[in-house]
Structures are given as C-alpha cells and as structure tokens.
Design a binder for these strands. Sequence first.
DNA 1: CTTCTCGGTGTACAGACGTACACCGAAACT
DNA 2: AGTTTCGGTGTACGTCTGTACACCGAGAAG
Lengths: 213, 213
Amino acid sequence: MTETRVERKERTRRAILDAALELCETQPLAALSLRQVAKQVGVVPTAFYRHFESIDELGLALVDESFTSLRELLRSARTFDSPPASDRALFLAIVDNSVKALVSHVPKAERHFRFIARERLAGSVPVRAAVRHQLELIERELATDIARVPGAGGWSGEDLLILANLLVNAMLSHAEELALAGGREDVVRRIEGVARRQLHIVLIGALSWDSSR
Amino acid sequence: MTETRVERKERTRRAILDAALELCETQPLAALSLRQVAKQVGVVPTAFYRHFESIDELGLALVDESFTSLRELLRSARTFDSPPASDRALFLAIVDNSVKALVSHVPKAERHFRFIARERLAGSVPVRAAVRHQLELIERELATDIARVPGAGGWSGEDLLILANLLVNAMLSHAEELALAGGREDVVRRIEGVARRQLHIVLIGALSWDSSR
DNA sequence: CTTCTCGGTGTACAGACGTACACCGAAACT
DNA sequence: AGTTTCGGTGTACGTCTGTACACCGAGAAG
C-alpha cells in the first residue's frame, strides 16, 4: 500500500478546502452549494458529509486556516533580520518591515486573506462570528506589537487597540487590492506605497497626539 | 382612480428593492434567489422581470441608492452650523462634525452602508465593479473635503487620496459596527469614541508627516 | 366607447439542490 | 484468516430554482 487511510482522508479533506477556496474567488461562501464543491473536487456529493456536516462547518475550518496565514503575516512583520539601534531608524524599519511583510505574504495566501475580508461581512451567522472573534484576537496581538514602537510609552491599552483596529482594516483592504493586482509589478508598488504612507502617518499621528494631551 | 399606473409600478419596484435589502441583512446578494425576493414582496416570481432582468441588475440599482446615502453622509460631515474662526477650533470641529455625521446617518440607512461594505467584497463581478468604482469617486470627494482642514496646504493630491482611502475603510468598518450595535447607547458611544480618536490621529499624523518632509 | 398597453397572475418544466439509504472494497484490527 | 471500520459510490426523493408561455384586468390613449 502506498498510502494509509488517514492520509487518503486528509488528502480529500484538503481537496475540499481548496475547492471551496477556489470557488470563493468568485462568490461568497453562502452562495456555494455542496454539490458544486463536490463536483470541483471530483467526488460524489454525499462524500462531502464524510468530512463536514454542512457548508458552514467547512467555512469554520477555512476561517481557522485563513487566520493561520494572517498570523504568519503578523509574525513576519515583527521579525527583524537586524534591528536598528537608534529610535528614528527603528521606527522607519518597523514601517518598512511591516509593509514588506504585507506585500510578500499576501500573494502566498491571497485566497485566505480575501476569504477573511469577505466572510467577515458576507458570511453566515456562525462564520461571521468566527471571523469577528479571530479579528479581535488579531487586533490584540497587533496592539502588543505596536506597543514596541519607539515612543509608544504614552499609549494606553485602549489607544493601542484603537490603532490596531485602524491598521487591521487598512491591511485587509490592501490585501484585497494586492490580490486583485495579480502580481502586476507597477500596481503592487503603488499599493505598497499607499500602505507605507498610511502606516507612517498613523504612527506619527499617534505619537503626536499622545504628546499633545 | 386612486393611483396612476407609473405610481403603482414604482411602488412595487421600491418593494422589491426593500425586500432585497432586508434579505441581504442575513446573506449576500449573490445568495438571494429571485423567488425568495418575490415571495418577500408578496408577488409572483415572474413579476420580478417587469422591473429587473436579473438579480445582478437589482444589485446595481441597490448600489446606486446606497451610494446616495453615503454621499449624504459626506455632505453632512462637511456642513457646519457655525464654523469656528480659529484654526485649532475649526480642526476640532471638523473631527467632531464628521463623527457626529457618521453616528447620526448610519442608523437612518444602515442597510445601505452594510450593503456597500458587503458587496464591495462579496458581490458578483458587475456589482463589485460598480461598488469599487463608486468608492473611488467617494474617495475623490472626501479628498477635496480633507483639503479644507486647516494646515492641509502641504498635502499633495496623492496625499489627499491616500488619506481618503484610509478614512473610507475605517468609516465602512465603523458603519458595520454601528449597524450591529442596533442603537444600544453604550456601544454606539464606544464606537463613536474610537472613530473620533482614529480620525484625530490620522489628521494630526498627516499634518506632522507633512511638516517632517 | 373602443382599443391598446402593460404590470401582475397561474401553470408548467427541466435542472440543480440537500440529504437519506443501501452498498462496495480495501485498509485496519483481532 | 476472519471480521470490522469507513471513505467513497449510486440511486432516489422531494424541494427549490430560473424562466417560458398564455392569460387577465384596469389605466391610458384614440
């Protein structure tokens, strides 16, 4: 035997997840039919039930794996090869590193990022709830990262969450734009520029606002 | 006769639009069926065709009227009862007025705002394209408003668009949150506070960033 | 008053939908 | 070696879908 049974099962499960993600490129999850997914996988409709009880349950699994991609992006954004010493240089490096992480990670999992942004608003009740919950966690995670920006000492926990919320929304929008750009170099560069300036402005604003209280 | 024929027709048309908006509270437009809409209106399925050729065409009509609501919000945000004289006071008044406009307009047309945010990402190709195009116009419109912020002299046209893009994304997110809040006073107040601080930070950041070039 | 227009009705059909059920064959267990 | 487990199959159903067609009746036009 070349393949164990659990391996086989896992392979079909993956195929279902991939098929759903692909079909979701052109329509929201709620518009997918179980038969459509099964046909795309090349499997009989009832086989779907061996892996998921419903389209919603499929959606929850996709939420999970999509947020894994998003967390990797955050992780990459806070990881430096060689962190600069001076505050000024570190500040600029943080901005640059974050934007670079965005641009390099989105193409690797653009279906995940688009799925999050879309189902956040268009998902069924359970799917939407799951996305919203995960996004809250992401905002908390991002808030702790932002707290490491030089000069962030004056930001309260609430300030950090408000900043994180603003940046997460911008990030999801840019991710969608990057996915739509489809790798066209000039478009990608333009989006990168917009994202960089927005992040720059927000952080500077937060620093100024902090000192103006 | 109590009602002319064109009035009658317009009334059913409106009923169809309203029914679709209501059904879209719980599902994306692409997941609606023509029969579902017809049943909600209380009309036979084939009557739908007297007004729209397809669900997509219905969607385009909804895009139009939804953006009318959004434009009213922008208009309200830039309209002052009594504009302050000093730069400092004007700046604060702009922030306050914008946030107040958001909080007061969203409940009056929350289905429109949610429709825009949702179909922007989840719509069929033509609907999505229409939303994206209208949002571009909105960003341009908002950019000219931002240009009136005291101290905005140093912002280029590109800067203005980048700011507008950031603010539109934040606004749509807050609109969704406000709609979900369903008028609960404490929640509304929290969102209002978040929106105000974000707008404040962004504008201050843009002013500082401008002078740091 | 007669004729035309046209929004809404009712019937009809082919196809897609979710899902229940019995079944198969090979991997896994004893 | 014999038995069990279980992912995938095939058939079968009632429901819902979009849409075609003939029809109606009241407002508009002559």
